[in-house]
Design a protein around this nucleic acid. Structure first.
Length: 495
DNA sequence: AGCACA
């Protein structure tokens, strides 16, 4: 009983066509294995990302002598075998062939199967998933579900190349903390390929989305699902949805104006009215949407997020008892966007036009430039989709009065637009510690140039939060094009 | 840094 375990250290190993490689970087991909081994012979099979740390691999040569030549070469070489600068240790495997190399999940396809470990289904919204994966290309569809393996999502890209770039960059990574509820510990993504090629999404709902077909009906029971989770965990605080959100603003180091709130909350639909007030020394605000659904989506997406980088102006959202606010139309603490600005009635541009460029474009149905997706099919990125981007504001003077009419489609649809880059990639633990709202990209910190309290006449709004939603920002972000570059960061770990 | 679980 004392000697049996000693066999694992074999100083004399039987040569095998199969080599065991360890101390690989966990990101190692098959191509890198081949690159390393091909000089010694023909590779007939590989298996990488093996083991708990995903840092081992197997390579099978066509011929035993090829494997022997590789082992003996590095046994006497002064230069060790390396992948991404890491020394790789090579031995004969104790098996003579690689079995089951290509499981179903290893066959590349355009649909990824993502398992989100360590979370409940309600912890990660579909919007967060969309944000994370949009960094690699246009996400066509997402379906989420719960299986024995945990919370899973199927994510459909245009093609296998895009899907694999997302897989290679995100497999094993975590969704940043600031995109998750506080109670979630680490949550790792395990990504494989699905055998699906085209997901059949029947409704826009809290568990599935079809971003190629914004006109897909909203599943009414799915809307319930959005509102239900707001019931307190203890069950005693039963909240019902309302079209009016109550926002408490924590750690308010910087001014939060009506305009800022409007920018942030407009990302999810038409904001009708806003009122800011003080209660118990804390700043609160009421934000009125046309309907409960829009409010629910905004609440879901913004709860716990900070308006400004650095943990400033953290939002806590609940449903108000109000359904229709009675506020002054134009004061510094309130705004009624349903009333046209009388001072500008004669002018070409309504007051809200420059303050809220996104308000009009949110609803494609009201904007003539909007592209209807034919048949709901969009095989690849279609630039006309940008018509629904906030950047596509109709020319001044074309602002129709019905801009604030009831939206013809679910208001959260625009949130589904591709994000600039993956928050995961942006906040790698190596290069940058995740902060409260680390996805504030273009240098809009409170200490920066842009004053949070001012809305620029050009329509460029000053909310990083809004930019994160890829919505309230009136500017098309240069790297936001799906199918474009990989996000910065995922190549950073060479060396 | 020491062998794969589909």
């Amino acid at each position: 009983m004392s000697t049996s375990s000693q066999h694992q250290f074999r100083y004399t190993q039987t040569p095998s066509k199969v080599l065991h490689l360890r101390n690989l970087p966990w990101e190692c991909i098959e191509e890198e294995l081949k690159e390393l081994c091909e000089p010694f012979g023909k590779i007939v099979n590989t298996k990488c990302n093996v083991g708990a740390n995903r840092n081992q691999a197997f390579v099978e040569f066509a011929d035993l002598n090829q494997a022997i030549s590789m082992v003996s070469y590095y046994a006497s070489s002064s230069e060790p075998a390396q992948v991404r600068g890491k020394t790789v240790y090579i031995q004969y495997s104790n098996r003579h062939e690689i079995v089951n190399n290509k499981g179903p999940g290893d066959v590349p396809g355009n649909v990824l199967l993502v398992t989100i470990e360590g979370v409940e289904a309600g912890d990660v919204s579909i919007d967060v998933i969309h944000l994370v994966f949009s960094a690699f290309g246009f996400v066509h569809k997402i379906a989420t579900f719960e299986k024995a393996a945990g919370f899973q999502a199927l994510i459909q890209f245009s093609d296998a190349e895009t899907a694999s770039s997302a897989r290679n960059a995100l497999d094993g990574r975590s969704i940043p903390r600031y995109l998750l509820p506080d109670h979630v510990g680490s949550c790792h993504l395990r990504i494989s390929y699905s055998a699906h090629t085209d997901l059949n999404i029947k409704f826009q709902s809290y568990r599935s989305r079809d971003y190629t077909n914004p006109y897909l009906p909203v599943n009414p029971t799915a809307i319930e699902g959005l509102i239900q989770p707001t019931i307190g965990p203890d069950g005693k605080k039963k909240e019902f949805g309302s079209n009016v959100l109550l926002a408490s603003i924590e750690n308010m180091q910087y001014a939060v104006t009506v305009d800022v709130l409007h920018t942030v909350f407009s990302a999810f639909g038409t904001v009708q009215k806003i009122a800011i007030f003080e209660k118990n020394g804390q700043t609160q605000a009421l934000i009125q949407y046309p309907d409960v659904t829009t409010a629910a989506i905004a609440r879901e997406a913004l709860e716990g997020h900070c308006i400004y980088d650095g943990g400033y102006c953290k939002l806590h959202l609940s449903y108000s008892r109000h359904t229709d606010l009675n506020v002054k139309a134009f004061s510094d603490k309130s705004r009624d966007y349903t009333i046209p600005d009388p001072s500008l009635l004669g002018a070409q541009v309504p007051a809200t036009a420059w303050q809220n460029p996104q308000a009009a474009a949110i609803y494609p149905g009201t904007v003539s430039t909007t592209a209807q997706v034919p048949g709901g099919q969009m095989p690849s990125w279609d630039p006309t989709m940008q018509a629904v981007r906030p950047g596509f504001v109709p020319a001044p003077g074309t602002f129709p009065a019905q801009t604030y009419a009831a939206p013809p489609i679910p208001a959260y649809y625009p949130k589904a637009l591709p994000a600039a880059s993956s928050p995961i990639a942006q906040t790698s633990p190596i290069t940058r510690a995740p902060n409260s709202m680390g996805i504030t990209q273009p240098g809009i910190s409170p200490s920066g140039n842009l004053q949070p309290s001012s809305a620029s006449p050009t329509g460029h709004v000053s909310s990083p939060l809004a930019q994160t939603s890829s919505l309230a920002q009136g500017v098309v972000q240069p790297n936001a094009r799906p199918g474009g570059m990989s996000p910065p960061g995922h190549r950073r770990y060479y060396g």
